[in-house]
C-alpha cells in the first residue's frame, strides 16, 4: 500500500482506547499494572497519556440539555462531592410552590430556574440571566399532551419541550417534572413562554411558526398557560 495514510497516525504504541480506559479506571488491576510498567519505559506512550491528562483540565461547557430525573417531586441540588461532579451543581431543584394555573382547568405549568447554583421558582416577569438553566413541571388532572414554546426578544420562537416534533404525553399527576431542561442562550430581553396541555399530540412546528409571526396560540383542544420572564 503506497498511501501515507496507510500508516498509523496515532503516535503511541498503546492505543488511545487503552489509555482512556486506564485513565477512567476501567482496567482491572493486572491491566492497569501492565500499563504503568509500560509507561516507565515508553516515552511515546507517556507523552500521549500526559496530553490526554492535560485535556482533562479544560473546562467543558454546560451540557445544553439538562438531564434530570423525569418524575422527581423534589429537585435536589446535587452535592458537589469531589471535583469530578462539581458540575452536578447545575442540576435544578424541584420544590413545592404554587404554580401558574389555567383557571378552572386543573392544568398548571411551573418553571424553575437555576442561577449560580441556587434554584428558585420562576413567576411571571421573573428576571433571569443567560446561561441559567430552566426546567418545567406540569400538573394535570388527566393525561394530556404537553408542549412548552417560547418567543424571545429577537422574535425567535423555539420549543423548549419536548425534543420531538409533537406534543408529548404526560400522565396525570401533580408536579410532574418534564424530562428535559434547557440552558438559556445569550439573547437578552423579555421572553414569552406558552405552555400547552392538549387532547392530542399536536404537531409543533406550525405552532412555533405561528408564534414567531406574532399570532397568539390557542389551538383547538388545548389549555394554554402564558407568562414571561426577562433575561439580562
Amino acid at each position: 500500500m503506497s498511501t501515507r495514510l496507510a500508516d498509523r497516525l496515532w503516535p503511541a504504541c498503546l492505543s488511545a482506547l487503552q489509555l482512556d480506559r486506564f485513565l477512567a479506571g476501567e482496567l482491572d488491576e493486572l491491566g492497569a499494572r501492565r500499563i504503568r510498567q509500560h509507561l516507565v519505559d515508553c516515552s511515546r506512550c507517556a507523552g500521549a497519556l500526559e496530553g490526554m491528562r492535560a485535556a482533562h483540565d479544560e473546562r467543558l461547557p454546560f451540557l445544553r440539555v439538562v438531564p434530570l430525573a423525569p418524575r422527581a417531586r423534589r429537585w435536589r441540588r446535587a452535592a458537589a462531592a469531589g471535583a469530578g461532579i462539581a458540575a452536578a451543581a447545575s442540576l435544578l431543584l424541584l420544590v413545592q410552590a404554587p404554580g401558574e394555573r389555567v383557571k378552572g382547568s386543573g392544568f398548571a405549568l411551573r418553571m424553575y430556574v437555576e442561577h449560580a447554583g441556587e434554584v428558585r421558582r420562576a413567576g411571571p416577569g421573573e428576571t433571569v440571566a443567560p446561561g441559567d438553566a430552566v426546567r418545567f413541571a406540569a400538573t394535570a388532572p388527566a393525561k394530556a399532551y404537553v408542549a412548552v414554546l417560547s418567543l424571545d426578544s429577537a422574535g425567535r420562537a423555539s420549543v423548549y419541550f419536548p425534543l420531538g416534533e409533537r406534543a408529548e404525553a404526560v400522565e396525570p399527576g401533580a408536579e410532574v417534572a418534564l424530562p428535559l431542561g434547557t440552558r438559556l442562550d445569550a439573547t437578552v430581553g423579555e421572553e414569552r413562554i406558552v405552555g400547552l396541555f392538549c387532547s392530542s399530540p399536536l404537531e409543533l412546528e406550525p405552532l412555533r411558526v405561528q408564534l414567531e409571526r406574532g399570532i397568539s396560540l390557542a389551538p383547538d383542544g388545548c389549555q394554554v398557560t402564558r407568562w414571561s420572564f426577562v433575561k439580562r
Binding site: A55, E58, L60, L63, V66, P70, A88, L91
Partner: peptide
C-alpha cells in the same frame, strides 16, 4: 439524569 451529567463531566473530554 444526575448520573449522565456526572458522566459528561468525567468523560466528556475524551469525546471532545
Amino acid at each position: 439524569g444526575a448520573a449522565i451529567e456526572r458522566l459528561y463531566r468525567s468523560h466528556g473530554h475524551l469525546v471532545l
